[in-house]
Design a protein around this nucleic acid. Sequence first.
DNA 1: GTCACCGAGTGGAACGTTCCAACGAACGGG
DNA 2: CCCGTTCGTTGGAACGTTCCACTCGGTGAC
Lengths: 362, 362
Amino acid sequence: MSPRAAGGDGRGSRRRHPTIVDVAERAGVSKSLVSLVLRDAPNVSDEKRAAVTKAAEEIGYRPNAVARSLVRRRSNLIGVMVSDLHNPYFTEVIDGIQEAARGSGYHALFNTGGRAAAGEDEALDTLLQLRTDGIVMAGPVLSPRRIAAVAASVPVVVVARHSRSPAHDSITNDDRMGARIAVDHLVSLGHRRIAHVDGGKGAGAAQRRAGFLDAMDRHGLRSSARIVTGAFTEEGGRDGVTTLLGDRRGITAVFVGNDLAAVGALDAFDDHGLSVPADMSLVGYDNIALAGLGHIDLTTIDQPRRDMGVTAVRLLLERHDEDRRSARHLVVPPSLVVRGSTGPPPRPGPLDLPLGRVAVAR
Amino acid sequence: MSPRAAGGDGRGSRRRHPTIVDVAERAGVSKSLVSLVLRDAPNVSDEKRAAVTKAAEEIGYRPNAVARSLVRRRSNLIGVMVSDLHNPYFTEVIDGIQEAARGSGYHALFNTGGRAAAGEDEALDTLLQLRTDGIVMAGPVLSPRRIAAVAASVPVVVVARHSRSPAHDSITNDDRMGARIAVDHLVSLGHRRIAHVDGGKGAGAAQRRAGFLDAMDRHGLRSSARIVTGAFTEEGGRDGVTTLLGDRRGITAVFVGNDLAAVGALDAFDDHGLSVPADMSLVGYDNIALAGLGHIDLTTIDQPRRDMGVTAVRLLLERHDEDRRSARHLVVPPSLVVRGSTGPPPRPGPLDLPLGRVAVAR
DNA sequence: GTCACCGAGTGGAACGTTCCAACGAACGGG
DNA sequence: CCCGTTCGTTGGAACGTTCCACTCGGTGAC
């Protein structure tokens, strides 16, 4: 009896997976032929093809991707390291990645670093050791040096974070422009004292901050621009607004780093008894599905999330399958989506009121 | 010159990864010793250990998990098939899974089926071919037969979906009980005509539906119970409410299948000019972070999402590492979280109004 | 009738690890 | 002084595939 004999070994361990050799024996052919049939190669007689298929079916054979990856030196796997799975922005990018990967015969596998550099490092290491054919980093907070190091051994595409690195590709929206559009919108409504609750060290936060200042400058409002530190999470937005309201000086509008944080900001305004947009206008960023809901109804800056995911995969495959060597950094334009969270400032009229004359105890 | 010589091959293809043999050559030891050092085994001289570590460092060696998995016949990978990455409920379960996996020397890898059986099948196949050591299915919509088939070749834990299958484990909250708690709460506020927008074919939807009917029954309200089909998504909730309002008969409260759908319901009520909770009370399910935000402020049923993720991994490892063979099906109790979306019905008073006296054509 | 070719199928060497049996040196006990 | 142990190290056989070189008939051209 073959030492491979399964079933009834009594030791109680889970039955081992059947291999290509098991299929070959049962079908009475060589393992090579089985391999050919499974990858449906031409030049195999119908007769043998049927026999192999039948045998594989009967013993419940499932190819071992591990062994295949080893010998082929490619896994057909795309590893995706997502900064924050709680942010719907990323899950929408993921939809695009998933779709594009499937359409090209690849499988996408996700990972998360929980918005921390150490976590991202570990997540990437897992992907690297698995020898994925390419890695997408969605909104990494990792240092550019670490990213470049990863890119030295596998094609990398960074999504939602600016880069000029020659080592990898990237796809982002124009965060500076988006921030400017947000400010322009608020200014056109009559706002002058505008604050920005930023995204802290999050991907793209620096550009949005710069764009905000830039636009305020252009409108001659640099001196009344106010920036407080936040994060790309609900808490980040809530905390930022709380800080802001502690010492606000007649601020009538807030541009928050992203939609998730804007939702947190909405919450904080509620707590302070400020109604939006009557007392305070609010603009977010990303246009996540949540922003469109009646109860949130957030004016925001849209970026084509799903397309960005699709494009990320395309960039990866250009490198992997077509052997492109030079870096490509794509930037897509954002656009304004006006909803109910913005309106004219509370004291209307073209006259600019002097500073801090709005009564709020604390 | 060795055929392995890398660098300067001029063909322009990405440099191959260094292997354990490369490290061995450079350190002047055997590959076996390198292997021992890397897995830091005892009984290796400090001298050699240092030499190997140094060599590995210098050439940027990174172990090949593929080759290791092949020979060890275990991958230290936990595959997680998530029904819907857009649902924060699952991303919170994921946090727990991630945490528990890391704590036990495993790596979690995620996948999604996009709430469709075909997608789930494909996602599971990827995980299966990768030979993950165990699979967690979070809220699968797949048929029990398919699930059992997967469980025949690898340990499986199903999260958030009831099962009595002897083939795998599961961890759920008591959906029936949760639904009853929701109804009890509404009834205690004075509601009589209560509707349920269900979760369609989603995991746990059937139990919540049953619990709803059960509770209505117990309160003698079976005849005024109304159920419409929805889904566990914003759209599902919105559509369900729209259907409901088309022919409502004095309904004053709605219990929606989950929080995501409840948020959609909120939206629909807005559209119809109904205010919550003045005109209509609303209860959700899951207590996702969103539900707690001031602007949503949803009364809901809490389940310990993160803990469920942690437990799922624990169940998996009991099978994989401790070789447990019998199935375990854990059920945790849900609890009521009262917030601002529920209140007394619009027509107060203890007197029960007769049926159908509210004018609605259809 | 020979030869080149083609189609169908096969064996064996890789792929990069781990693990096991085995080895020599050092060492302590009898 | 020899023998059994222990310690540090090593070669080689796996693991389950793919791919290459090869064989073996049959067939068509000359």
